[in-house]
Design a protein around this nucleic acid. Structure first.
Lengths: 395, 395
DNA sequence: ACCATTAGTTTATATGATAAACTAACTGAA
DNA sequence: TTCAGTTAGTTTATCATATAAACTAATGGT
C-alpha cells in the first residue's frame, strides 16, 4: 500500500523541479521557487542533486532584472540515449535518440509478412544492436528499449496477446529481448498507445491533459491520455476503438463483428472504394495515401474518396468525444498523410453532429511526429519509465 | 502547483487509515500498521486524531491471538448526515442518510414537466429543507447536499448546461441552493455520474478500480470510474455515450444525429416496439419496465421486445468495453428492472462479438442500489468531497 | 559611491515518520 | 499457579525533509 513517507515528498518535488526545468528551460532557481511555491533552499538542494545526477546542467548566466544575474538551468538531453522501435506489419523502424527525442540514428527495414516470428524477432534484435552500437558516450548510455507493436499487449509481462495483422498470438516478446539485454528496461506496448505518448512528450499533445491519438492505417487504434497519463484499462484494451460499430447493418469486419469503424475510416475503406470506382491502378505494392493526396489536387474522384473516409472518421470521432471528452484529438497514421482532405471533412462531420456545441468540441489536429510517432513514442516510454515517471497518481 | 510539503504526507496517511477502517472495520491499530506498512506509533497518532474528529470510535476489545487483546476501531457512520436528491424528468426524490448511506428519511414527489424551472427548484428547496429538519443530532450535522440532474453539468459552477428532457439550458442550480444554505457544500452533477459514485461507495462497484455504470432509462447515460475515480473529461461530457452511433442508416435521434444507441437500448425503443407490435395497452401513464418484465414471464411477445433491447444494449456495450476496458459494467436505470430479460441477452451479444475473448470481457451485472443509485450517489458525492477525498491524484 | 533589488546559500527550526524501548494484557504450558 | 512468550499499544529519541529568516553575492540605477 502506498503510504506517504517523507522521501515520497522529496521524490515528488524533485520530479516537479525536473519537469519544470525540462518544460521551461532555461530557468533559474529563483524562478523555479516562484512558480512551484517551493522554498528557495529546497529548490537549491534538489537542483544540486539533479546536477550531480547529470539530468540538469547550468548553462550560463541570464539577464539581470535589476539585481544579481541568475544562473540558468537546462535539462541535459545528453544524459543518456533511448532506443525506440516500431514493429509494423511488414517493416521495422528503429530510432536512437537523446532524451529530447532528437534522432541520432534511424533505420528502416522491410520484411515479408510471411516470415515467421523467429525471423522477425531476429531482425529486431539485430536492429536494436545496431542502434546501441551507435549510441554516443553519455553518463547513462542507452537507458532502455521501447517497442511498439500493432496489437494488444500485456504490459507487465511484455507479451503480445493478439496481433491479427501479424498473426501473432501470445508472443512473449519482452522476455526474449530482456534476455538479450538483461540490464536495460525493455517496454513492449501497443503502437497507438506509444504514439500517443510520443505526441504527449514531443508532439501535438504537449499542452493537453486529456487527449486521444488516433492511429488510422490498415485499421484504427487509439492511445488515450487522461490526466496527462496513458490510460490502458484493466487488460490493455482501452482504445481499441477501431471496432466501434458505426453501422449494425454494415460490412462484416475481420473481427467477426459487423459495421466496425475501421471498415470505413481506414486504408481498407480507401482500397475498397478505389476498386469499386475502377481506380485499381492505385492498388499496387507501393500504395500510399500521401501520393494519393498529392494526385487528388487535380483528380476529383480521388479527392472524393479521401473525403468520404474523412467523413466516416468524423462519425466515429463523435463516439471518441462522448467517451473521453478530450481537449484534443490527434489524427495520426498513414491516413493522416492525406492532411486536410481527411481531417477537414472529419471536423465538419463532428461539428454537424455533436450534441453540446462549444463546450464539448475538441481540437481535431494532425499528428506532429507523423510516421515517427510510434518509434519516438517507444523512446518516450523509456524516458517516462526511467527518468520522468508520471506524477504520483491515485491508487 | 502541487508541491509535496510534509503536511501532504500526513493528509495522505490519515486518509489511508480512515479508508482502511471504513473498509475493514472492526480493525485494530496493530492490524492497520501491518496492512499499511506504517509505523505503529504513526498509526496511533493518526487514529487518536480521527477519534477526536468523531470519524472513528473504539468499539470494544477484540479476540486475543495469543497476547494482549486489541482495541477494535470502527468507522463512525453517525458523525454526520448527508442529503442526496435526484431530479428526474417528472419527479424529485430525496434521501437523508448517515455516512454509511443508511437511509434515515426519504421522500418522493412528482411534478408535471410543464412546471417551470422556478417552481421545480422551489419544490426542491422545500424537499431539502424537510430532509435537513429530520437530521439527527450528530457532531457534524448535515455535511452537504448533492443533487443529480439528467443532463450535462459544469461542476465547478454547478450549472446545468444542457438538460434536454427537462428543457433546461444554463441553469445555475448550485448557486441558487448555495444561497439558501451558504454554510454547506452543494454539489450538482449528472445523474449517471452520481449513480456511478453511489455504486462505487455503497453498491456493485465497490471492488473495482475501473467500471462503467450505465443508466438506461429514457436515454442512456454513463458514469465512468477509472482508477477508483469518477472521470469527467474536460467539460463533463465524458460518458454521454447514449449518442454513440450504432447504425449510420438508422433512426433519427432527438440529438439530430442518426442511429444513436439510446434509440435502441432504452425505454424509447421499448415504447416504439410496443406500439409497432400493437401492444399499446402498455403505453399509458404508469408504463413501467418492472411490470412488463413480470408480465413477460407468461407473454412471449413482451419477453421478445425486452430481449431485443437487451441485445442492442450489448451491441453498444462493446463500444464501452473498447473505450474503457473496465473490470465491470453495471447496468442501472429503469431498463435494469427487467433484470435478466435485458442483461442476459446483452451479455450474450458481448460474448459473441468481442474481439479478444477472456482478457477483455468485463463482468456485466445489475445495479445494486436500484432506483436509489442516483440519490445515494448524490449523498456519496458529499461524503467524497467532505470526508473521504480520493487519493491524491495525478496533476 | 551606494542603495535598492534580485539570486542564491547557510542556519535554525518545525513537522511528521520511524525505530527502539517501554508498559499493558493476554495465552498456554510447566 | 506461575511465568515465559506473545501481541497491543505508548513513549522517547532520532532522522529526513521543508521552511523561514538571515546571510552573502552580484547587479543596475541614481
Amino acid at each position: 500500500m502506498r503510504t506517504g513517507n517523507i522521501s515520497l515528498v522529496k521524490k515528488m518535488n524533485k520530479q516537479l523541479v525536473l519537469k519544470l526545468i525540462r518544460d521551461q528551460h532555461p530557468i533559474s532557481r529563483a524562478d523555479i521557487a516562484k512558480t512551484t511555491g517551493l522554498n528557495k533552499a529546497t529548490v537549491s538542494a534538489l537542483v544540486d542533486e539533479l546536477i550531480a545526477e547529470h539530468f540538469v546542467h547550468e548553462s550560463g548566466i541570464g539577464e539581470s532584472t535589476g539585481g544579481r544575474r541568475p544562473l540558468m538551468l537546462r535539462f541535459n538531453a545528453d544524459a543518456g540515449s533511448l532506443v525506440g522501435v516500431e514493429l509494423g506489419v511488414n517493416y521495422l523502424y528503429a530510432v536512437l535518440t537523446n532524451l529530447n527525442a532528437d534522432i541520432l540514428w534511424e533505420q528502416r527495414r522491410s520484411f515479408r509478412p510471411s516470415e515467421g516470428q523467429e525471423a522477425i524477432i531476429g531482425e529486431m534484435i539485430e536492429l536494436i544492436e545496431a542502434a546501441i552500437r551507435r549510441a554516443p558516450a553519455t553518463p547513462y548510455g542507452v537507458m532502455g528499449i521501447g517497442i511498439g507493436v500493432p496489437g494488444v499487449v500485456h504490459t507487465e509481462s511484455g507479451t503480445v496477446i493478439f496481433a491479427p495483422n501479424l498473426r501473432w498470438d501470445d508472443v512473449a516478446l519482452a522476455a526474449v529481448l530482456q534476455k538479450q539485454w538483461p540490464e536495460r528496461p525493455v517496454i513492449v506496448e501497443n503502437e497507438a498507445k506509444l504514439a500517443a505518448l510520443g505526441e504527449k512528450w514531443f508532439g501535438a499533445g504537449n499542452e493537453f491533459a486529456h487527449f486521444v491519438y488516433i492511429s488510422a492505417g490498415i485499421g484504427i487504434g487509439a492511445g488515450v491520455v487522461l490526466h496527462h497519463q496513458l490510460y490502458r484499462g484493466v487488460s490493455g484494451l482501452a482504445g481499441e476503438i477501431g471496432h466501434h460499430t458505426i453501422d449494425v447493418n454494415g460490412i462484416r469486419c475481420s473481427c467477426g463483428n459487423i459495421g466496425c469503424w475501421e471498415m470505413y475510416a481506414s486504408e481498407k475503406y480507401i482500397e475498397r472504394r478505389l476498386s469499386e470506382e475502377g481506380r485499381s491502378e492505385w492498388l499496387d505494392d507501393r500504395f500510399s495515401i500521401a501520393a494519393m493526396a498529392l494526385a487528388a489536387e487535380s483528380d476529383e474522384q480521388l479527392a472524393r474518396i479521401l473525403e468520404e473516409a474523412g467523413r466516416y472518421l468524423g462519425v466515429g470521432l463523435l463516439q471518441v468525444i462522448y467517451a473521453y471528452n478530450p481537449e484534443a484529438v490527434i489524427i495520426g497514421g498513414p491516413l493522416a498523410q492525406a492532411g486536410e482532405y481527411v481531417i477537414g471533412p472529419a471536423r465538419q462531420e463532428v461539428r454537424k453532429r455533436i450534441l453540446v456545441k462549444k463546450e464539448s468540441e475538441p481540437l481535431i489536429i494532425a499528428s506532429k511526429l507523423k510516421e515517427k510517432s510510434c518509434a519516438i513514442g517507444a523512446a518516450a516510454s523509456v524516458l517516462e519509465t526511467v527518468v520522468l515517471p508520471p506524477e504520483y497518481a491515485a491508487v
